[in-house]
Design a protein around this nucleic acid. Sequence first.
DNA 1: TAGCATATAAACCGATTCGGTCGAAGCGAT
DNA 2: ATCGCTTCGACCGAATCGGTTTATATGCTA
Lengths: 203, 203
Amino acid sequence: MENFLSLTDDKQKTIRNAALKLFGGYGYKMASIKDIADEAGISKSMIFHYFGTKKDLYLYLVDYCSKILKGPLMHYDDLPTDYFERIKVATKKQMALLKEEPFFMVFLPTMLSEKDPDVAKELQIYREYAASFQKDYAFKGVDLSKFKDDVDPIIVLRMMVWMAEGFSKKISQDNEDSYQRYVDEFTETVELLRKNLYKEVYL
Amino acid sequence: MENFLSLTDDKQKTIRNAALKLFGGYGYKMASIKDIADEAGISKSMIFHYFGTKKDLYLYLVDYCSKILKGPLMHYDDLPTDYFERIKVATKKQMALLKEEPFFMVFLPTMLSEKDPDVAKELQIYREYAASFQKDYAFKGVDLSKFKDDVDPIIVLRMMVWMAEGFSKKISQDNEDSYQRYVDEFTETVELLRKNLYKEVYL
DNA sequence: TAGCATATAAACCGATTCGGTCGAAGCGAT
DNA sequence: ATCGCTTCGACCGAATCGGTTTATATGCTA
């Protein structure tokens, strides 16, 4: 591990991204060290020189991603109580993250559903953490009184979850750096919903 | 092939679903015959007895799925011009399909992006077909005049695409047969949007 | 009941790939 | 010249790959 940490940040990132991408795409067992090394443009031996074993590499990635999860990105103490404002803040944060860690959202879902006994045990904690987190972040402390009386907020919240899911999937497919356009499109959509679902007083 | 086709329909379906699931999850190369056989509860030799080679099995699945695509499910001559009605019709069809072919939507996307030279060539036709189809099905002949004047239909259409994506992802994760509840939730959401985005005349 | 075809699986094949090791080449600093 | 460090290609035994062959169990027919 110290071998890896003494590399330049650029090189660390290249290797980490290759590993995140392939573990994310294929899971622990099916992703091979050779493929990761090829993707990173180094030889297979280097991976072992840096990390020791496949398992150590994987657990390093788990730790790395958990630090992102716990990082300043995910503090939800001071989130807006206005639902649509919160959505917009969250989206902006997401996009910023995606720009810096393009494979974080590739790795995380497969990590959370990883079943291989070699590593499954170490993941249990993160599973629970991620689950509770998502709920709080999306819903906790939201001011639902701004919605029109005949608009069921539950339905809106559910809809937004679906939307966000589809939206982020779309983004992760396009690898261009047209993030700004996507953010604009998403913001446009949120504004349309606000305008039509809130009481006029709050517009 | 004739060996396979002479099996009972149930057994055919078991084997086909196992193959669709694993090819869908891992792609042509990374999905192994042994894993497919295990998933189907038969021995590896039987797969070769039924299909000859791995490639033949894969191409059989491609053909099988293309028949579904071209089937009555996908005729869009008589779709409603009302946008939300069309969404609802499409969703109902999708759910019915998902019930009968739970792995169709697992296999199709990876099939459409399969790059392995062993099979890639045979897939070109389906790629183009699927792309053009999706656009027509979602948008062709939709009556956009029912939307409120200050509601940009483009945004609504885009939003619905995201929603549908996220919705179907959610469904494919839950393997319970609670399809009906999902359909109800989705219908509820569509109704909410119609009520708030259409001119009052059309409600 | 003897004999034959068929369905199925286990054992096996050579080739490849797996995670992991090792020795040597390259190279900057001393 | 040599030490230390990085890097890589060659290599290891074990496992797995797609695919074949052999053995066995189960009928169907005569």
